[in-house]
Amino acid sequence: MGFTPYSGPASAFPPSSTWKTFDEIFNANKAEMLQTGDTESDVSHIHTAVLQAAKEIGVEERVIFCIIMQESTGNVGVGTTIDNGQKPTGGLMQAEESPAFPGQHNLPQSDITAMVMAGTKHFKGNLEQEGDADNAVTIYEALRLYNSGRIDKRNLSNPEGATASYVSDIANRLQGRTN
């Protein structure tokens, strides 16, 4: 089943009541993570790291995990990229502050946790910029900022120099859909 395209303001995106549980979303994506070269241990460490980051930083665990799937398909050995501000980004959440381990798998929990914590802290900054409310509207707007650094609140699919479908794709992932 393909992704449903969403666009417009955050209010046009699916409400959080339609989101699946963290375990449902995580389990639906396990096979895709393993296809990247991740080991069962890597996948288990991602699960642990997401729950830890959610608790310590105060970001919804489903959102953290869906950012991971959108940014790196859960590949702990994903390479670094250059963001639209011309800064290197790396790790599971492709964040500027994140350590990266290109081409490596079977990483220790500490390395995977460091990647997830860095990306979650970055996202938390975007969330705080939008008011830090724990609701779908604020989360969707913060996702646009996370991806592009800028936001057109009238249309979250306006890429602002980044990926047009980014917020829409994560909205689909939150509902348990996979590529």
Results as ranks from 00 to 15, higher is better:
117 M>A: 09
76 V>E: 00
173 R>I: 10
68 I>S: 01
31 A>C: 06
10 A>E: 10
20 K>R: 15
106 N>E: 11
25 I>Y: 07
147 N>R: 06
101 F>H: 13
176 G>E: 07
139 I>V: 13
25 I>Q: 10
85 G>N: 15
173 R>F: 15
68 I>Y: 02
80 T>A: 10
9 P>D: 08
166 Y>G: 03
175 Q>M: 14
84 N>Y: 01
34 L>P: 00
96 E>L: 12
103 G>D: 04
154 R>A: 15
178 T>S: 09
62 R>I: 03
149 G>V: 05
5 P>S: 12
106 N>L: 06
160 E>Q: 15
159 P>A: 13
34 L>E: 09
156 L>T: 02
145 L>T: 07
124 K>H: 08
129 Q>N: 14
61 E>C: 08
45 H>V: 00
124 K>Y: 10
81 T>W: 11
66 C>Y: 04
142 A>P: 06
106 N>R: 07
47 H>Q: 12
48 T>I: 08
135 N>S: 10
141 E>A: 08
36 T>H: 09
34 L>N: 04
35 Q>R: 15
117 M>D: 13
164 A>W: 15
147 N>K: 05
3 F>T: 06
11 S>V: 14
47 H>T: 00
78 V>R: 05
47 H>D: 11
18 T>W: 12
141 E>G: 08
9 P>F: 02
158 N>A: 14
142 A>S: 13
22 F>I: 08
80 T>N: 11
78 V>E: 10
95 A>R: 01
164 A>T: 02
78 V>H: 05
155 N>S: 03
19 W>I: 08
93 M>L: 08
108 P>S: 08
118 A>Y: 00
40 E>G: 08
172 N>C: 07
44 S>V: 09
90 G>F: 01
81 T>K: 12
56 E>S: 15
54 A>K: 01
74 G>S: 05
6 Y>G: 05
20 K>H: 11
39 T>Q: 10
63 V>D: 00
41 S>K: 15
111 D>T: 02
171 A>V: 01
24 E>A: 14
70 Q>P: 00
15 P>V: 10
26 F>R: 05
52 Q>P: 01
100 A>P: 05
103 G>Y: 01
28 A>F: 08
14 P>R: 01
101 F>M: 09
6 Y>F: 15
175 Q>W: 00
134 D>N: 14
20 K>E: 14
4 T>F: 10
26 F>Q: 06
179 N>E: 13
84 N>T: 02
111 D>W: 05
161 G>E: 08
47 H>F: 05
114 A>V: 00
56 E>R: 10
74 G>A: 01
75 N>W: 02
121 K>V: 01
137 V>N: 15
134 D>A: 14
102 P>G: 03
61 E>G: 07
136 A>C: 10
12 A>L: 11
93 M>S: 01
138 T>Y: 10
108 P>V: 06
130 E>M: 15
37 G>E: 09
21 T>A: 13
167 V>T: 09
54 A>Q: 04
90 G>K: 02
61 E>V: 05
156 L>H: 03
21 T>P: 00
10 A>N: 07
30 K>N: 12
90 G>M: 02
112 I>L: 02
19 W>F: 15
178 T>C: 05
124 K>E: 04
